[in-house]
Design a binder for these strands. Structure first.
Lengths: 225, 225
DNA sequence: CGGCCACTTGAAAACCTTCAACCTATGTGG
DNA sequence: CCACATAGGTTGAAGGTTTTCAAGTGGCCG
């Protein structure tokens, strides 16, 4: 995002606006968003580590504007697992309208900004058709629509698939080639079902195989696919 | 499902009807479905092994009436993986409206029946609000909304979680306690990311631990949770 | 009856996790 | 500005789990 845009968006924080008037509307809703289709309110920026929603909390729906959110669920035994990522343009919290409460905790993995979507009385039949249709299509397109396709792959391939999936979803517009992963090895491991040490070693193997170059959280995609 | 209902539904196969007039409407849409909310057409019954949709095929949306569908994706390397199950009341094919084509193949794991949902021009803004809202809520409630929570668990726990999840989703109305799993060990393994042999051994362990009783595809839930 | 497919079992090899130690970067307080 | 504390990252070795391979069983259908 350009600085000018960021500045302008900060200006409208906490103001309810029509998404059609947002300079970043294309990122969230695609090419042409007609007026009055979606209303949203830019929330105050989230620092790294800040929580947007809490598992069990009240239903609410957000769309990520910038940054990256990590979704975690607390298991009955007290442990936590990462169950998803949300990148700019993706929805957070939709599941809560089906369950009556938030099904996961969402925490900023890097400094992030989100917009709260105004969904008039979802569940009572009062919402606007065009908005619902947008949401439905977005929902159908969400990342985890089916079981993790990497289940059962060896650790190296899982990590490779994760990185590739991340780069495709984060619209890294080419310029930012050496990009920065917002997640710790532990979080990646939790998401993929691997120990953090295994993630480290897998990244090492991928580096040695020239499939990518890693140093800390900085990653550059490397020649051989 | 009672015989009388099955007969009646067969009677309306290939006839477009209002779901509100369907005797099984509650299973799909919950308690009260107002008239004219959803229109559907009962498709000819699917025998075990029959394919409902093909990966890459034209967008279409179904709701499972009876039976069980297995969803598979073909990977670039030619192999196939099971990425989901669909049980009565669940949607099949919704993702296709976001992608423009079907993202998985759906095959009947047991004799099944489905209804094709009439979604007026989804993607063009002409659909009815109440229908969209129903679909959105259903979509938000779908099983694989987040990464598989069993990733990283030991094989025995994965299989146990799978069985439990299955029994909860299949509305086994108590009477059918020794129920029949419609999937082969290989399919379960593919879904969970385990080798078929590992599924066999995990089921063995669960049996010995009295957590369930298995013989072939017949399963009875056993005392200790 | 024969063939096929799903299922089962055993043993060896491969893989991943665990544990423990150590390293590096970052930020804080003195 | 340095010393220290902390969190994340890295590495090695041991042990456990899972996969793989191989062989054998059981049921179902032509």
């Amino acid at each position: 995002m350009h600085t000018s845009e960021r500045t302008r968006l900060r200006g409208v924080a906490n103001t309810e606006t029509d998404c059609a008037s947002c300079p970043a509307s294309r990122r969230c809703w695609g090419e042409a968003l007609p007026n009055e289709t979606v209303h949203a309110r830019r929330e105050p920026p989230l620092e790294r580590g800040a929580r947007l929603i809490e598992q069990g909390g009240a239903p609410a729906l957000f769309i990520v504007a910038t940054g990256c959110l990590v979704l975690r669920v607390g298991l009955p035994d007290g442990s936590q697992r990462v169950v998803g990522l949300r990148l700019p343009g993706e929805l957070v919290g939709l599941e809560s309208y089906a369950r009556g409460e938030q099904t996961y905790t969402a925490q900023a993995a890097s400094p992030s900004a989100v917009c709260r979507l105004r969904v008039p009385a979802l569940g009572t039949g009062a919402a606007h058709g065009a908005l619902l249709e947008r949401l439905l299509l977005k929902s159908a397109a969400q990342p985890e629509r089916a079981a993790a396709p990497w289940a059962g792959l060896p650790a190296v391939e899982r990590v490779a698939a994760f990185i590739e999936n991340y780069t495709q979803r984060a619209q890294l517009s080419g310029r930012e080639d050496p990009f920065k992963l917002p997640l710790t090895r532990a979080d990646i491991g939790s998401y993929l079902g691997l120990a953090p040490e295994t993630v480290v070693r897998a990244l090492g193997h991928l580096s040695q195989a020239q499939r990518l170059a890693v140093r800390g959280r900085t990653v550059r995609l490397g020649g051989a696919v």
